[in-house]
Amino acid sequence: MELLNLQPVESYKTFLKENIRPDGRELMETRQTVLNVGSISTADGSALVKLGETMVICGVKAELTIPSAEDPGKGIVVPNMEMSALCSSHFKPGPPSEQAQVITKFLDNLLKSCTVIDTADLCVMKDKLVWVLYCDLICLNYDGNALDASVLALIAALQNVKIPEVTVDDESGLPHTNMEVKKAFATRGMPCATTFTVFDGSHIIADPTLKEEDITEGNITVVTDEHDNLIYVQRQGGLAMPEAEMQKCVKRAVEHGSEMRKLYLAVAS
């Protein structure tokens, strides 16, 4: 194990010769995942995800606002990822790190391209009043692959959202929220992300840890939905790779997706 810190690349190669990783996983095996919802009672929806040692918590706060003039009949969903100095020495205190911003944008793109939330459902009164869902994600402990964990946390938290009933007074036009009656919010679809990275240009490994991220190049993230469609494919950098390898990743992502969807269903029931 000492050798793994001193000569990470060399010792990693010896492990890969035996088709196993230092933590005992096979190359395409993901870490144990724990999903817990509703753990923040003050939020309108929340989820906590543990992916091995990586821990991400997501809280959703619903607020009423006036919609933008461009989309008068649509609500707004705002994801925000935070990777504070608390979660790893890789991050310094101060403005959000590049990685956090990239994940924020990833989640934003994902929500826009999939049908998990129909923003028209968030409309209370057209052109007057809509819900805005602030989804704040915080990485509590970082051990690689924050992306998969944050997708899981975000979707589970959105499924957990319960918003109070709003009635608008006809005479005064003022909204009245009834905190007693809260209804669950209809979400459609259960996207699930799987990340891979490439070691030494030839070995593809799934769900990398922080140490593995440091010594590998290029990451591939595939998001699948319940119909096994690809919703989002992101491949950043790394060496040129033949298409067959990519298909392997897609296949594994589909398998992993169906496992993860069992988790979504288990916490929903």
Binding site: N109, L110, L230, G238, L239, M246, Q247
Partner: peptide, 23 residues
């Protein structure tokens, strides 16, 4: 793609599609 072998270097795909459509 790389200009020599036409292997893919990076990809960014957004929106629901089947893997056949992706290909």
């Amino acid at each position: 793609f790389d200009s020599a072998q036409y292997d893919s270097i990076s990809a960014y795909a957004c929106g629901p599609m089947t893997s056949d459509e992706y290909r």
